[in-house]
Design a binder for these strands. Structure first.
Lengths: 376, 376
DNA sequence: TTGAAAGCGCTAACAC
DNA sequence: GTGTTAGCGCTTTCAA
């Protein structure tokens, strides 16, 4: 189909004719022009050049107030709004920050997104969201999406360590902020959760309640953030002078299902713990659910501590004791890191968010007495 | 600051010099060029014109295979990726769909986003997310964000009816798909939930269990989707030949807090219902929580039915009976509607998703006998 | 089969 | 104080 009707095409509208093009557009009787308007349209209607329109929009003082007002008037009448892709093209930056998440169905992340979006909105910035479902391929795809959209920075909350993929961002001058990797690199900052303190506090608290056999259900095997949490737990136990039993160190998947599975295994073990710490609340909820199903009472027989403090901690029964990680603080830290990291030739900085222990009803005194009685 | 150092600026790099500009960029020793690459860079390295590079990237057959391969080689070596804002500018469309949500912390929506994102990904499309927190100002702001980013369509799941704001989208040739308004307009399609059937099924089920005094806790007062749900409930009751008592028709806010508040009121009322239907699961969870706190047993004293079937229905105790709305189906319907609605001069279509009743443990036989005994 | 060049909307450097 | 114009990266005629 090469336009058989032809002749029309012969009229080339090149060169100087460009100027005339949008002049031909006339507003329909109903009101304003349905076509996307450009600055030229506005300029012509206001009897100025597009440069002046640009100046008015960007608040340049070098425009006579009278002219500016006329331009603003036309802008309002025409309901004109700028085309950000032109601006993006001009500057090579898009006023957009990317957020890469592992799993948007974990309530922790929507909460983060909500806070982060609010911060961006204040700065008139945009959010580009990508979720990875813990898949490496999706991570790489997400990073590419960020690159082609020319984002100004990436908040990378996907737990997996992806140095190589992230390098592509840094090479393209896109600062990156990772989650909880506890290390930085050129162009890559990190926001870590103070699990050392958090786990220490939780273990101390449980120890104070008389617990000595404490189990841990981590996140996905091999993922960096899982390791950090597990190691922090182990360190906390040692710090409290408690023995860590390998068989009580389980892995989950940061989801309810993983908690359920871990609880199943835990109940098979002879050395049953009197308390369980988990890598996140969903895991704890899964554990709770399985314990409940098996008729194990919480906290009478086993105490349970989650991590994150998602809203649902408070609706399960018993409400979960948990290590709260403030999503607002996290979002703020990310924004700070992103802004401070704009120069990707510099080494990134390390930021911290310290969790706080929120005590609810899933924890109680260790059941020594109870167990002894039963065993008789 | 008008460049006092002057002389350097005198060398204007205009006109034909443009061609030379990127030729000066040389790849650093480490490997590939850290500057964002353009097609010109690739073209020069491959010894072709940028038009040819474009053809190769877009799979035009009119390129000799040998040339094409050479170009692909350079693209790989240079890790080149296109700049979408240039494409957006060229076409006036961005390959992005906007999603406007009321509240991303309601697990229903992340679930939707997840499914919708997956569908977009298949089509190589992007997602622009905005949340409104039920505020009109935020809705308008979101719509503007969609406009300036030149989205190709908007999935508007924010419950409030915003005909006027949405008109701005349609005027700019952006098709809109609303949620559950049960009406369409030029350029505006709608995906509605079959609450008529759903509520009828739920009421029939409860009626079958002997319930006659059934209460309803809706969503935010005055919001269209709230009205639809309440009206569907009322119709369902009438259809089942049951009386609707005004005092048993309460409003909530689609959140846990609203359910809590509604339950408080409900327990004050003399005519205590034996069953409660709610506008969504969060509301039901709130009701459940308050009933639990007040020592009212579910389902022995009061049966409870939610709506949505979020994951947390299954972790509260007792697990919630609910009207399941499939997020996958919803996302698919939205995509279909968005694609079918591309011609904004046509009237939109009405689509439906029918909920299904999922029976868990929060519902049981009406407690007639129990109550009578107690009253003695 | 390939290249040259216009043009998408915007900004900024420069001219007046 | 305002206008003119190049140029951001890409696609797409049209010409060769």
């Amino acid at each position: 189909m090469k336009c058989p009707e032809g002749s029309l095409q012969v009229v080339r509208k090149h060169g100087k004719e460009r100027q005339k093009k949008s002049a031909k557009r006339s507003a329909p009787p109903g009101g304003w022009n349905a076509d996307a308007q450009s600055m030229r349209t506005i300029a012509q209607l206001a009897g100025v050049s597009s440069a002046t329109v640009s100046r008015v929009i960007n608040g340049s003082t070098a425009v006579r107030e009278e002219t500016a007002e006329r331009v603003r008037q036309v802008i309002r009448e025409q309901r004109y709004f700028p085309n950000t892709s032109a601006i993006t093209m001009k500057y090579g930056r898009s006023g957009t920050y990317g957020v890469i998440l592992p799993d948007i169905t974990n309530p922790f992340y929507p909460d983060f997104v909500r806070n982060f979006e609010a911060i961006l909105l204040e700065r008139n910035l945009e959010l580009l969201l990508a979720t990875t479902d813990f898949h490496t391929a999706r991570i790489q795809q997400s990073i590419r999406r960020m690159l082609v959209r020319r984002v100004d920075g990436v908040a990378f909350l996907s737990s997996e360590e992806e140095r190589d993929s992230l390098a592509a961002l840094v090479h393209n001058r896109v600062p990156v902020v990772t989650a909880d990797l506890q290390k930085t690199a050129v162009g890559v900052s990190d926001v870590a959760i103070g699990f050392a303190q958090g786990m220490a506090e939780a273990v101390r608290y449980l120890h104070g309640l008389g617990h000595r056999e404490i189990g841990f259900v981590g996140g996905n095997e091999g993922i960096t953030t899982s390791n950090v949490r597990r190691d922090s737990f182990v360190a906390a136990m040692q710090g409290a002078g408690l023995a860590v039993h390998e068989e009580l160190l389980l892995t989950g998947d940061y989801r309810i299902s993983g908690g359920v599975a871990a609880a199943e295994s835990l109940l098979q073990i002879k050395r049953r713990p009197t308390a369980i710490l988990t890598a996140n609340d969903l895991t704890a909820i899964g554990v709770l659910r399985e314990l409940h199903r098996r008729g194990v009472r919480v906290p009478e027989e086993i105490s349970l501590v989650g991590c994150d403090d998602i809203e649902y901690c408070d609706i399960v029964s018993p409400p979960l004791t948990t290590l709260r990680i403030s999503r607002l603080e996290l979002a703020q830290r990310y924004m700070t890191a992103l802004e401070a990291g704009r120069d990707v030739t510099q080494k990134g900085k390390q930021y911290w968010v310290v969790p706080t222990l929120v005590i609810r009803s899933s924890t109680g005194p260790a059941p020594k007495a109870v167990r002894k009685k039963r065993q008789k």
